[in-house]
Simulated assay, not measured.
Amino acid sequence: MMLIRRLIPFWLLLAMLAACASPTPTAAPQSRKLRVLATTTIVGDVVRNVAGDAVELSVLLPVGADPHSFTPTPQDVAKVSEADLVFANGAGLEEFLQALLENAGAADKTVAVSQGISLLQGEAHSHSAEEEHATEEQAQQPMPTTETSDAGEHDHDHEHEHAAGDPHTWFDPNLVMIWVQNIATTLSEKDPQNASSYQKNAEAYTAQLRELDQWIRQQVETIPAENRLLVTDHKSFAYFAERYGFTQVGAVLPSFSTLAEPSAQELAALEDAIRQLGVKAIFVGTTVNPNLAQRIAQDTGVQLVTLYTGSLSEADGPANTYLNFMRYNVNAIVEALK
């Protein structure tokens, strides 16, 4: 009994020491993993390849969501607010983003993975067919702002061109290599303890992207040059076309955004071009309403081919990673055009 009485103070002392050694709530953010939020499934997959298991990664948009037309919920505001970092495509792709960041007070922790890419320019689209041209200074802006492309504020005539330029940079793996370095640099600055791991992962993934680029070139060579004509649901394949030697004949929605509405004259002109140039297929993304594209395909007698454009597939689908996404699309394009 005396032994037990003597041991009690000893165990109480140990408990007190353990309590003193436990981290306080204010110190917790330093010891836990970074909470990282990616806007789209495509951005999320690239971040995952760079970050590995060193961060807690979640993706804002669900599989199959159109990043142009996505409407965030109050729960999404909370997700953004709780994140340490938010990786977005940028360049005006996520048209909902500016208002969401303001509501969540998170503008200072958001990084555009497309930062540093010289964006391709295009003509602004509206029912009045007015043209707008972005400046080079706007093209270099990392995130959509009120000076570059208003997120959530659009003219009533459905003028939806992005002032910064074409945001669909992921259709060129060489540009995704820039994404990778932006992600690795940001993670390393925010979490220096894992910087070497982030850089090593970035180098390994960049090597895979180089292999993907070479594979795409080999596949495209099997398509006769005169058949390398692209008609898509909206203007999303310019980077792919420029890199791999395709001609963009036109788009059902002649805009960088799926929120645009074409005029009857524009649709008629597209059908004439398809017939005159002998276009073999119209390519439509899984995140876009295919009705207009189906009508044009029926009118012109060409096939309608489904691609993955703004989102990866489900985990058990054929485009569940960015690398598989590109391989699936290239295989579908080659099969339709050769």
Results as ranks from 00 to 15, higher is better:
205 Y>N: 06
19 A>W: 11
70 F>A: 13
190 K>G: 01
260 A>F: 04
149 S>L: 04
228 R>F: 03
279 V>R: 01
304 L>T: 04
175 L>I: 10
58 S>Q: 03
292 L>P: 02
161 E>K: 02
321 T>R: 06
164 A>S: 08
117 I>H: 06
3 L>P: 08
256 F>I: 05
299 D>S: 14
9 P>M: 12
29 P>M: 14
303 Q>R: 13
48 R>V: 00
73 T>Y: 10
237 F>S: 00
239 Y>A: 02
91 A>R: 14
300 T>A: 01
43 V>W: 03
201 N>A: 14
102 E>Y: 12
22 S>Q: 14
173 P>Y: 03
233 D>R: 00
150 D>I: 12
66 D>T: 09
262 P>L: 01
132 E>I: 09
85 L>C: 04
220 V>L: 05
51 A>V: 06
145 T>W: 02
134 A>V: 11
87 F>W: 08
258 T>S: 12
200 K>H: 02
266 E>D: 04
226 E>P: 00
60 L>R: 05
9 P>I: 08
86 V>A: 11
304 L>R: 04
256 F>K: 01
96 F>L: 11
10 F>E: 09
200 K>P: 00
325 F>H: 15
39 T>Q: 06
91 A>K: 13
50 V>N: 03
172 D>P: 00
81 S>W: 01
30 Q>H: 15
22 S>N: 07
108 D>Q: 15
18 A>Y: 09
31 S>W: 13
209 L>H: 07
19 A>K: 07
273 A>P: 00
199 Q>W: 06
204 A>N: 13
279 V>L: 01
253 L>R: 06
179 W>K: 10
218 Q>V: 13
29 P>I: 14
165 G>Y: 02
257 S>P: 05
318 P>F: 05
158 H>M: 09
152 G>L: 06
321 T>G: 08
199 Q>V: 04
166 D>M: 02
62 P>H: 11
82 E>T: 06
145 T>V: 09
18 A>F: 14
77 V>F: 06
246 F>S: 01
43 V>R: 03
175 L>C: 03
123 E>I: 02
94 E>D: 14
209 L>Y: 07
266 E>L: 00
177 M>G: 03
186 T>N: 08
160 H>Y: 11
192 P>R: 04
261 E>H: 13
61 L>Q: 12
50 V>I: 11
83 A>E: 04
231 V>I: 05
300 T>P: 00
178 I>E: 12
24 T>S: 15
92 G>R: 12
225 A>N: 08
227 N>L: 01
246 F>K: 01
26 T>Q: 15
176 V>K: 05
327 R>K: 15
79 K>V: 06
272 D>H: 04
171 F>K: 03
17 L>G: 13
332 A>M: 14
130 E>C: 09
189 E>A: 10
332 A>W: 06
117 I>E: 04
243 R>C: 03
268 A>I: 01
280 K>H: 02
157 D>V: 11
70 F>C: 12
37 L>R: 07
26 T>L: 15
192 P>C: 05
141 Q>D: 07
11 W>A: 11
223 I>F: 06
119 L>F: 07
323 L>F: 07
248 Q>S: 12
57 L>R: 12
193 Q>I: 05
29 P>K: 14
28 A>N: 08
250 G>S: 03
169 T>F: 12
